Simulated assay, not measured.
Amino acid sequence: MPNNYVPVEDLVVSAGEDGRVIRFQLDDDRRVSTIHNGERDAALLAEGCL
């Protein structure tokens, strides 16, 4: 899924049928810099779930 704040695409994986996801935020070298999880809408926010 595109992230407006990082010029590379993040990896988003479904974490089940309840709508939760895990988002691996990548840096410019495509290495995982941050991991977000939670309900899809919240996990896909630029700042991730808090």
Results as ranks from 00 to 15, higher is better:
Leu44Gln: 02
Asn4Gly: 14
Ser14Cys: 12
His36Tyr: 13
Glu9Tyr: 01
Leu45Gln: 10
Asp41Lys: 05
Asp28Asn: 12
Glu17Val: 15
Met1Leu: 04
Ala15Pro: 14
Asp10Cys: 09
Leu11Ile: 15
Glu17Thr: 15
Ala46Pro: 12
Val6Cys: 00
Met1Ala: 12
Gly48Gln: 07
Pro7Arg: 05
Leu45Pro: 05
Arg30Pro: 03
Glu47Met: 11
Glu9Met: 00
Ile22Asp: 03
Asn4Asp: 11
Asp28Thr: 13
Leu11Asp: 09
Asp41Ile: 04
Ala43Arg: 09
Asp29Met: 11
Glu17Tyr: 13
Cys49Ser: 15
Val21Asp: 03
Ala43Tyr: 06
Ile22Asn: 02
Cys49Lys: 11
Asp27Lys: 05
Ile35Pro: 09
Asp18Ala: 14
Gly19His: 08
Ala15Met: 14
Leu26His: 08
Asp27Glu: 06
Pro7Cys: 00
Asn3Gly: 09
Leu11Gly: 09
Gly19Cys: 11
Tyr5Ser: 11
Glu9Gly: 09
Arg30Gln: 14
Leu26Ile: 10
Ala15Asp: 15
Pro2Tyr: 01
Leu26Tyr: 07
Ser33Gln: 13
Glu39Ala: 01
Gly16Trp: 10
Ile22Cys: 03
Glu17His: 14
Asn4Ala: 13
Gly16Asp: 09
Ala46Arg: 04
Glu17Leu: 15
Ile22His: 05
Tyr5Ala: 10
Tyr5Thr: 12
Asp27Thr: 02
Cys49Val: 15
Leu50Ile: 12
Val12Pro: 00
Val12Met: 03
Val32Cys: 01
Asn4Val: 12
Asp10His: 04
Gly48Met: 02
His36Gln: 08
Asp10Pro: 03
Glu17Ala: 15
Leu44Glu: 05
Ser33Tyr: 00
Asn37Gln: 03
Leu45Lys: 12
Glu9Asp: 11
Asp28Ala: 11
Glu17Asp: 15
Leu44Gly: 06
Gln25Glu: 12
Cys49Glu: 11
Asp27Ile: 00
Thr34Asp: 03
Gly48Asn: 07
Val32Asn: 10
Phe24Glu: 06
Pro7Ile: 00
Pro2Lys: 03
Cys49Gly: 10
Leu11Phe: 06
Leu45Phe: 00
Glu47Thr: 14
Thr34Val: 08
Asp29Gln: 15
Asp18Leu: 09
Gly38Thr: 06
Glu9His: 00
Ser33Ile: 12
Leu50Ala: 15
Arg23Glu: 08
Asp41Val: 06
Val32Tyr: 01
Val8Cys: 02
Ile35Asn: 05
Asn37Asp: 02
Met1Phe: 02
Gly38Glu: 00
Glu39Ser: 00
Tyr5His: 09
Asp29Arg: 14
Cys49Tyr: 04
Asp41Thr: 07
Arg30Ala: 10
Cys49Asn: 14
Pro2Gly: 05
Arg20Tyr: 13
Glu39Asp: 09
Ala46Tyr: 04
Val21Met: 01
Ile22Val: 15
Leu26Asp: 07
Asp41Met: 01
Gly16His: 13
Phe24His: 12
Asp27Ala: 03
Gly38His: 03
Ile22Gly: 07
Pro7Ala: 03
Asp10Gln: 08
Arg23His: 08
Ser33Glu: 13
Leu45Glu: 10
Asp28Ile: 06
Asp28Arg: 09
His36Met: 06
Asp41His: 06
Asp27Met: 02
Ala46Cys: 06
Leu45Met: 04
Glu47Ser: 15
Ala46Gln: 07
Asp18Trp: 07
